[in-house]
């Protein structure tokens, strides 16, 4: 399906999917920007070709040995120091289920 543009409702839905709150006054501007960009990139629809998508066939996964990579706990403090809300060695979040 090729886009003919995006409505304000469409922008609202995408922002929700992307977990970004946008203000009503931003919706129009974003819809317009998206419309211009999509009008430009739509040109690739004219290309005909049957080459298989390259995907990631060249990449070989790097696996570490299934052993203990380092002593437990040596990085804990450095990493938890960056957590906005913590309780001891736990990350604190709001309740999900009420």
């Amino acid at each position: 399906m090729i886009s003919k543009g995006i409505s304000r409702d469409g922008v609202k839905k995408l922002a929700a999917l992307a977990r970004i709150k946008i203000e009503p006054e931003e919706e129009e501007k974003l819809a317009k920007d998206m419309e211009h960009i999509l009008a430009y990139v739509n040109a690739i629809q004219e290309v005909s070709g049957t080459v298989e998508s390259r995907g990631s066939e060249k990449v070989v996964n790097a696996l570490r040995e299934d052993t203990q990579p380092h002593e437990p706990g040596i990085h804990t403090e450095a990493i938890l120091r960056e957590v906005p809300k913590r309780k001891g060695d736990y990350i604190q979040v709001k309740k999900i289920l009420s």
Binding site: M1, I2, S3, L14, L17, V41, I44, Q45, V47, G49, T50, V51, E52, S53, R54, G55
Partner: peptide, 18 residues
């Protein structure tokens, strides 16, 4: 997103290979 994935993302990967 569903419905646009083929026309954009997949198509772009084909043109990338070309």
């Amino acid at each position: 997103s569903t419905g646009y994935y083929d026309a954009y993302y997949n198509k772009a990967n084909i043109v990338r290979a070309l």
